[in-house]
Design a protein around this nucleic acid. Structure first.
Length: 510
RNA sequence: CGGGGAGUAGCGCAGUCUGGUAGCGCAUCUGGUUUGGGACCAGAGGGUCGCAAGUUCGAAUCUUGUCUCCCCGACCA
């Protein structure tokens, strides 16, 4: 049992966010049945309730990629060590987190299975695929007429993380990686920015999560990139989470992997490449950004079940009529279209108490839960609980009114989650910190629980001097991005007091 | 990889100091009573106490090793 909470209202998740944020996070992931740890260090099992959300993310993003001319393909999981070695910064950036395959068979020695058959050349389990895809591009591209080359793959990758965190940072994760090759700097940069903007729209519209789009400072760039762009979201403890990245790789990879084309003048030139990705980390972002002390809250556009119907049965006498009412309600709702899809409606016929079922779906984050009993059938009504406003309790509209308003209601829930997250981010974004003393005071120390009471984004001027960042290392604070919207005004660097015009976002990050 | 904490039933925990082969709450199952709602009563099932070796007549408890998880750092999507 938990510590006695005499007056606190009962919450489905314990501890609450305020009591212990990181423990709360674990409990929400468990209660929502999205994912769990496996027997393999740092590797997770994504369960149907989590994977269903990921599938909806995939579907929406995939459509956006196709609409902008990209095609899917698949490259090998294993990358020869020699491929990886070709781009110096790239190797250095990933060397410390590589899974390496050195053998290709097992044999039995003293009754124990041991690796046997050492490989001539070790294989890397891909941490990202710039190199393998680049090698293929070098074969595919001959002429400027072959450009741009726009491909994407949905795949798993492995990065041997020191400190895994369920859904947010695991050794293996699922993602999408786009790789493109272009004739000119301008084309490649436009592509980098286009995909970055697609991520911004996707995360804001579909995940209902407001973000700060911007460029990464030099020290936070992807290994091998010339420019890295990110969208930064704020979690409910005020920490930042990079929700998507897009990189202009310049000619770094084309030179090291020899990706050349004959230009319009007939001369050989190296292509300009880009890469961009989002991962299952977005599931973790969803949890940390939208959940409350009663569990997950899934934006309708990502909800595997947007409406869950829970029959409340008091005895066999009304069972048939209630179930029939639920079935027809389900059919009518399914005939509705929201965000381009038929409504996803679940009729939960499990033989457990109605109250248990309702709370199960609240913890799983279903946007709307309908409890239907004999009296609703009689009155032609429905009993509605809205996940984004549990505090408002239940309401009992006429069935016909509810169905007529369902699309508007889902739209309102989607928008409401965004608005709440935006209000939170705005309230935790500080713009009036001008001195180092104020900066240090703001980021101060965590309390004993690890819960950080006074934390968020600090938007302030920065001189651009990378060495000045060493002084904020001990605070665990980094520059998350240099936002696109700049006021361009002269000011002083919050870290050094030197003249500075550039605004940046400082925060602790996941 | 460094520092700290922890692995006992599905979940949350007690028991470990002072060895005598497991207990509580919730969940699960059965029966009953209830019910516009996260119900109540009674009964039941479920654990080789993370794993391995050692000490001992005897180990959840002591020793050593090892794996995993959590928190703080260094690294990252």
């Amino acid at each position: 049992m938990n510590a006695p909470q005499a007056k606190a209202p009962k919450t489905a998740i314990s501890p609450t966010r305020a009591e212990n944020y990181s423990e709360w996070y674990q409990q929400v992931v468990r209660a929502s049945d999205m994912a769990e740890l496996s027997g393999v260090r740092g590797c997770m099992i994504i369960k149907p309730n989590g994977y269903g959300i990921w599938e909806l993310m995939q579907r929406d993003l995939d459509r956006r990629f196709k609409e902008t001319g990209h095609e899917n393909c698949y490259f090998p999981l294993f990358i020869p060590l020699s491929y990886f070695q070709k781009e110096a910064d790239h190797v250095e950036g990933f060397a410390k987190e590589m899974a390496v395959v050195t053998h290709h068979r097992l044999s039995t020695k003293n009754g124990v299975l041991v690796p046997d058959g050492e490989l001539e050349e070790p294989l890397i389990v891909r941490p990202t695929s710039e190199t393998v895809i680049g090698v293929a591009m070098a074969k595919w591209i001959k002429s400027y007429r072959d450009l741009p080359l726009l491909v994407n793959q949905w795949a798993n990758v492995v990065r041997w993380e020191m400190r895994p965190r369920l859904l947010l940072r695991t050794a293996e994760f699922l993602w999408q990686e786009g790789h493109t090759a272009h004739e000119t700097y301008e084309d490649a940069m436009a592509e980098t920015r286009r995909m970055h903007e697609i991520y911004r729209q996707f995360v804001e519209e579909v995940l209902a999560l407001p973000v700060v789009p911007g460029e990464k400072p030099a020290n936070e760039r992807f290994p091998g990139a010339v420019n890295s762009f990110s969208i930064e979201a704020m979690m409910q403890d005020g920490r930042a989470l990079q929700a998507g990245t897009s990189h202009y790789l310049g000619q770094n990879f084309s030179k090291s992997l020899d990706i050349q084309f004959q230009n319009r003048e007939g001369n050989l030139e190296h292509v300009h490449t880009t890469s961009w990705g989002v991962s299952t980390r977005l599931l973790g972002a969803l949890v940390m950004a939208h959940s409350d002390d009663n569990g997950l809250r899934v934006p309708p556009r990502l909800a595997p079940w947007q409406v869950v119907i829970v029959p409340v049965l008091r005895g066999d006498s009304d069972k048939e009529s209630v179930l029939a009412y639920c079935e027809s309600l389900k059919s009518e709702l399914q005939a509705q279209t929201y965000a381009g899809d038929r409504l996803r409606v679940k009729l939960d016929k499990r033989d457990i108490s109605g109250a248990d079922k309702k709370w199960d779906w609240i913890k799983k984050g279903a946007p709307l839960v309908l409890e239907i009993g004999a009296r609703d059938v009689e009155g032609g009504k429905v009993c509605v609980t809205r996940r984004d406003h549990l505090d408002q309790g239940k309401r009992f509209p006429l069935r016909s009114e509810f169905i007529a308003g369902i699309v508007d209601e889902l739209t309102a829930i989607q928008q409401g989650l965004f608005d709440q997250a935006l209000a939170f981010m705005t309230s935790r974004t500080v713009t009036d910190i001008k001195t180092r003393a104020a900066f240090d005071a703001y980021f101060g120390k965590n309390d004993e629980n690890g819960f950080v009471g006074n934390q968020g984004f600090v938007r302030a001027k920065w001189s651009g001097d990378l060495s000045s960042l060493e002084s904020i290392d001990e605070l665990g604070v980094t520059i998350r991005c240099i936002p696109f919207d700049q006021d361009g005004k002269e000011g002083v660097c919050v870290l050094t007091g030197k003249p500075a015009t550039q605004d940046v976002i400082f925060a602790r990050a996941y």
